[in-house]
């Protein structure tokens, strides 16, 4: 290292310094707003703290917070709900986005307005979207249940008013809201694929479906993985719609991790325990991301 440095000319040194100067603001920003809070909440996870009494009131509590987690119904339900949410939300929204993107990239008349329409939900505020869905999913006389009734469905779902359907309602709404965004990401990738591959496939007699499964999907594999990671992270982030629509209810039916953390921190003022739950969330996301990155190495071209 030292040897190399000595060889640098004065000008190179200056350039190097300039490079560091460019990086520093961002580095400091990340340090203050991302790295430090993460570390701080990691530490807080092992403490009891009433923030009303300042930093000096932080008491070390060992593993007490994590011990409480084991028998905490609210947190357990939140974990399970989050898992269900992720398992349903990620594959459905990503594959839906992919299909729409593939269709809108090729065959459709009026491409641009259609693309815009698909993207619209994403740029609408979640809170207002939530209210619209509340009306759509009104169990008595709402359009969705009226349509289901007209189709002959006997036991209509209670949506946000019942434990067995509230989470499904939230998932549906989130997919509708976010799929357009993933679609745009896929569209951008699709534009980059060369036409020749498709043309030669057509010459070989492949139909649209075959081209989609044998060319589009393999070529987009890394993008699909990237979007899946994004969607997974989003699925752990879900909060707004729950806070607006159900407040985690009925019972604990739509209680998810972030809402749980919010509850502990701002409804119970139990910062230590909330931080411990945040650490748990951190570990989960880290594990999921690690798996996905591994997969990416294995399967991308």
């Amino acid at each position: 290292m030292r040897g190399r440095k000595q060889k640098l000319s004065r000008r190179q040194l200056q350039e190097e310094r300039a490079g560091y100067l460019f990086v520093i603001p961002n580095f400091i920003g990340i340090l203050i707003f991302v790295a430090l809070p993460i570390l701080f909440s990691l530490v807080l996870g092992f403490t009891k703290w009433n923030p009303m009494h300042g930093l000096s009131a932080i008491e070390f509590a060992g593993l007490e917070n994590f011990g409480r987690m084991v028998s905490d119904e609210r947190l357990k339900t939140a974990l399970i709900n989050n898992l269900i949410y992720t398992i349903a939300y990620v594959p459905i929204s990503v594959s839906l986005a992919l299909v729409i993107a593939a269709l809108l990239n090729n065959y459709v008349f009026c491409k641009v307005p259609l693309r815009l329409m698909c993207f619209m939900p994403y740029i609408s505020a979640m809170v207002s979207v939530a209210y619209v869905w509340l009306i759509l999913l009104n169990p008595e006389g709402g359009p969705v249940n009226s349509a289901l009734a007209a189709l002959g469905v006997k036991s209509l779902p209670g949506w946000f008013t019942k434990s067995n359907s509230a989470l499904a309602g939230i998932i549906l709404m989130s997919i509708w809201h976010d799929a357009g965004y993933y679609m745009i990401l896929f569209l951008a990738a699709l534009q980059g694929l060369s036409k020749e591959v498709y043309e030669s496939a057509r010459v070989d007699g492949a139909n649209g479906l075959q081209a989609f499964f044998c060319i589009t999907i393999p070529l987009l594999a890394s993008h699909i993985l990237f979007v899946s990671i994004l969607a997974t992270i989003n699925s752990f982030k879900v909060f707004d719609q729950i806070n607006v629509l159900t407040e985690g209810g009925p019972g604990y039916a739509t209680n998810v991790l972030v809402y749980c953390i919010y509850h502990y921190a701002f409804r119970e003022h139990n910062i230590g325990y909330a931080s411990a739950a945040a650490v748990l969330l951190f570990v989960i996301i880290m594990a999921v991301s690690a798996i996905q990155v591994k997969l990416k190495e294995k399967y991308t071209l």
Partner: peptide, 11 residues
């Protein structure tokens, strides 16, 4: 990086 991204969005 992925985790940092996740964490920052969560925060």
């Amino acid at each position: 990086l992925t985790v940092a991204l996740a964490a920052s969005t969560l925060y």
